[in-house]
Structure formats: structure tokens, C-alpha cells
Design a binder for these strands. Sequence first.
DNA 1: TCAAAAGTGTTATCCTTACACCCATGT
DNA 2: ACATGGGTGTAAGGATAACACTTTTGA
Lengths: 338, 338
Amino acid sequence: MPPVVMRQWFPRYDRSMSESRVPESDEAPPAPGQVTVELSAAIVAATPAGPSVLALRGEGGGAPGLPSGPLEATHRTLEAGLRSWVAEQTRQELGHVEQLYTFGDRDRTACDPGVRALSIGYLALVREARPAGSADAAWEGWYRWFPWEDRRDGQPAALDRLEARLVAWADSGATAGARQLRRDRLAATFGTGGDGWIEDRVLERYELLYGAGLVSEAGAPPGVGEGSVMRADHRRILATAIGRLRGKIKYRPIVFELMPPAFTFLQLQQTVEGLAGIRLHKPNFRRLVEQQGLVEETGEVTTETGGRPARLLRFRSEVLLERPAPGLRLPRPRQPAA
Amino acid sequence: MPPVVMRQWFPRYDRSMSESRVPESDEAPPAPGQVTVELSAAIVAATPAGPSVLALRGEGGGAPGLPSGPLEATHRTLEAGLRSWVAEQTRQELGHVEQLYTFGDRDRTACDPGVRALSIGYLALVREARPAGSADAAWEGWYRWFPWEDRRDGQPAALDRLEARLVAWADSGATAGARQLRRDRLAATFGTGGDGWIEDRVLERYELLYGAGLVSEAGAPPGVGEGSVMRADHRRILATAIGRLRGKIKYRPIVFELMPPAFTFLQLQQTVEGLAGIRLHKPNFRRLVEQQGLVEETGEVTTETGGRPARLLRFRSEVLLERPAPGLRLPRPRQPAA
DNA sequence: TCAAAAGTGTTATCCTTACACCCATGT
DNA sequence: ACATGGGTGTAAGGATAACACTTTTGA
């Protein structure tokens, strides 16, 4: 039996040297006809309780937002600009970063009419959630903004509350054809009665709820919709990020960007469950991961988890060269008959 | 046996009423520090010979490009702006449209230093390749720009020529570590010796070739790299489009956006083969499509294809409500031993 | 009659899923 | 002793891939 014992899953860093520069705004405000570009990051970390996002407190009591800032002439690339804003606003070092989408509807995002506001959203993954770099930044569980997306403990209460209103929305279509279209769209995004739920379709569900007036955007009175509100289009960016991550874990070994260097099977499983918002079948998950060659044993063992000590694993990066799509199948347990 | 007989796979339209407005450019040129946004579309159609892209002849003998134009204040959404430019420059009506990626490296795209040039690429699919709307637009097989991506008839000659130079590039890394990294990246994108070729990684392969100096971008003397050159970053956008399409056919029934209302199994198979750039196993492809419930028989039959008449099929859109990821598995035939 | 394409049957294999069960530790 | 989580064996069922074969037309 391997003797070495590890203690912590996600070691915490001490909070010394926090430092945060306030960006100067000497720049002239953009003139009508111009274009502004905002770069925003959904920075995700895994914690035992579930996935978290780094959020900045809203200024003057407004809604919170994601770390973000305007594209500047000094930024060599878009990603470099994003990284520089994140470095200024948080203490996080980013690992994996990927572009999600560019939003630019004239009437949904812009605050200044006549100025086109583009918003480029990014997904960033970090291994360890360090304490936020300033008093204005905090890690928050991502289901705070999407309570209906967490099905780990069965159908969430938020979704129970939404379902009747969604059906009412579908039935309030102007024509019979419109009603059928709405019902079909509802079934395709939310499934029917807990069946047919496809975890990746986060953005489609959010857009449907938005169109049906069941979630509020920034500016609306609080308490009108399910879930918390974010500044500008940041909640939509977060929905895109969650959907992308949920889709991608299945064909790329991207979860490991969220894991510490060594981890147990159950920690890996719980991370995936948190991301996907569903429970998985333990013995089969274990075997799928093993058999795909995604991990290897470190030789160490941890007693932190209670029960029998667990072997520690690390990611086998060689798998990238061996397999075409080394992702994690998600072995859902059979649904107990309703 | 069904009696009705259809004649053509892709009926051609007559070329009357072609019309194309030259866009005015009254607008002041952008000042330093400003941002310009170009919207570009890779418009794809399927033809019996393979997938085609609508290309515009380069002005003044320059490299050809994709239909594109600047984002304007009148455009309500980004996609609306794209559609309006495409409508002006071509006669195509677009079907499915999706955003691909926003490029914005300061030093790769911009022609005017001091002005940030953003380039938002889109993928658009059309059912029928109509004759181009103007003398400047033409349908071109997409492998003209990516000859190494077409493995339907075995390893293409272009890839044979590239392989030695790729290995030389990998071996010319500065340190042993750099050489290993290059070899790994090469294996992950191109596979090794025809084995491990993953058709979706089109952009990764293009970027590697670009980094290795084996494809030329606009401005370089002709004949320096493999494949034709396109204006600005349009070839990169096309690489993104091909990769996205190749990936997406596997989990969304998106090929049917390229098919006419009725088609045969072989036509569907050849379309998929053209997109993916590989050959498929006929009997198994047929069964996979059937069994997924993706198509239904129209009751008609065509004799156009030679040999025994083939039943005509249509897409069953209900499948979207029935299955989670109704895509086309790609049953590759066993590789003949080399 | 032959070539060409359409279409069917069948088998071996692998992967996934589900169920049942044993193991090692702390309290 | 028992609760908790770690970990293994195995068999049923489904999906896939390969091969062999029949059918229907036009030249």
C-alpha cells in the first residue's frame, strides 16, 4: 500500500499582496458611429460544492458582472487584451482560455445609442480558486444565476416553478402554428417532464426563458425572474460558457484544466457532475475514465475523503496523441421511474 | 413500386435578373485608435463533385475573397449585417447561418496601422448553388484552398509533398524540447502516416502549416505554398468553417441544410464524404441513417443515378424532438493495410 | 450478358449499462 | 458494529463494422 498521504483537495492561498490598479479613463468617449469592444471572461473554477465563477460586485449597487474591459490599441491580440483586464481586476492566473462568441445586437447591449457595442465573451478555466484579488471580486457558485440548470438532486425547485409558466407561454402563441412551434422549441430545449433534458443546451434554454419574459436582465426590478441578474449581457456570456463546457467535456479532456495536479476518482466525478448538473453512475464512470487512458495513478493515497483511503490520480497528457476524441462519456444512472 | 421519377439532383436556375449594386463608400476613413469590423461569410453548397464555396474575384488581380463587408450603424444585428452584404454581392439566399469566430490580431489582419481590424467569420449553408450573381462571384470547390484536406481518394498528392517539409519543420526546433513539442503537435493534427487523421482539425492543421511557412497568405508570391491564397484572413475563416461543419455533422442533422428537398442515400453519402473528405462504408452508412430516424421515403424513385433506380428520401425534422444528438456517425471503411 | 448502383442478411466484436458484491478506514 | 466511501466482477443488451449476397435497371 502506498504510504504517502495528501491532505487537501484544493489548497488555499494566503491573501497577502492583494493589489488592484484602478484603470485610468483618459480616453475620449466614443463618438456616434464608432464601435466599442468589450472583452469579458467567465472564469471558472471547480470546488467540492460545484463550479464557481469569479464575479465583480456591481458599481453603485448595480448588478454584478464578469471581469471585463474595453479592447485597447496596446493589446496585441484579443486574448492578450482579455488577460490584461483579468490580471488588473483579479489575482487569478488563467489557464485554458477560449473565445466563445461575439454579441453585437444594436438594441440589446448598447447603453449609448449611436455607438455600436460589441461584446466578445471568453471562457477561462483555472485550477484553484484563489481568494479574490479585491474586495469587489468574489467566487460564486454558477447555479446562483442558473438555478434551473442544476439537476444533481433531481429536478430543482426553480424549474418546477418555471414549468407551468413555460407551458403558459407556449399556449399563448398567436396562431395554432406558433403554439406548435413554441411547444416544439420547449421540448427540444427543456425536454418534457424531466425526460430528454440535454445538459449542453444552456444558452438555448436561457434565450427561451428570456424571450418568454421569465428571466430579467439588468435594470428590471429584482425578484421578477428566476436566478440572479448580471450586468449588460454577462449572464448570456455565462450561459454560453456553461453550455460550451458541458459540451466539450465529452470530447476533449478539458475537465483536467480544472483539477489540481493530483485528485481522486470521486473528486473527478463530482467535478464533472457539478459541471454537467447531473449525477453519474460511479463504478461505470470510473471504468470509462480508466479505459480511455485519461489518468494514471500517482502512487499516493489520501484519507481526506472519509471511508477507505483513495488512490490519487493525475492526468495522462499522452492521451492527446493516442485517441481521437479523449473525452468523458457521461454514464447517467437509469432514471428511477416517476 | 413507386412510379414517379425525378430527374435532377441539383436543378439549376436560369441566369435572368442578375443584379448587383456597387456599395457606395461615402464614409470617412476610420481614424487611428478606431475599430473596424468586417463581416465575412463562407457560403457553402453541396454539388455532386464535392462542397463548393462562393468566392469573389479579387480586385485588381489580387487574391479572391469571401463575400464580406463592414458592419454599419444601420445593421440591427451582426447576422443582419452579414446577410445584407451577401445579398448585395451575390444572388444567394442563405439558409442556415452561424457565427464562427472573431479574429482580431493587431498585426495579422490590419492593413492600416493604428486601426484595429476585427473580422467576424460566419458559416452559411445553401440548398442549391445558383449561378453566381455577378461576374465577380463564382462557386469553387473548397479543396482548391485546402488540397491536403481531401482524402476521398487516399492520401492526396499535396499532403505527400507537405509531409517531408513538416517533418523538417519539426526537426528544426531550437531545443530538444521544442522539437518534441512540434512532433507532438504534428501527430495530433495530421496523425502519423495517414493513421490518426481527424477530419475536424482543419483549422489546427492550417495554423500549423501557416506557422511552419508552408502556406502563403495574401501578398506572398504565388506558388510558394500549397493551395490557393485568399484575401486578408478569409482562408483562415474558410478553414474554421470546414472544421466546424465537419465536427457538427456528427451531432446535428446539419447536412440536410445542404440537400435538396428529396435525395437518395448515395447522394447524401457523397455529400457527407465531400464535407468530411473521407470515404464511408455504404451499407453501414445507409443503416445508420435509417436507424437514427433521420430520413423517410418520399415514395418516389429516381433513375438519374445509373443502375437500379433509387428511392427518394426527405429529412424527418421530427427527429430533432426525438433524439438528443441526431447526427451522422461516419462509418469509415477499414483501412487497407499499407 | 454485363456493369453499375441499390439494397438486404448475418455475424463477430466491442462498448455500455446495470447489478451485485467485497474492501479498508474512522467512529 | 456500522457507516462511508473505495473498488471489482460479470452478464445482458445494444451499437458497429465487416463480409457476403441478392435485386433492378441501362447499355
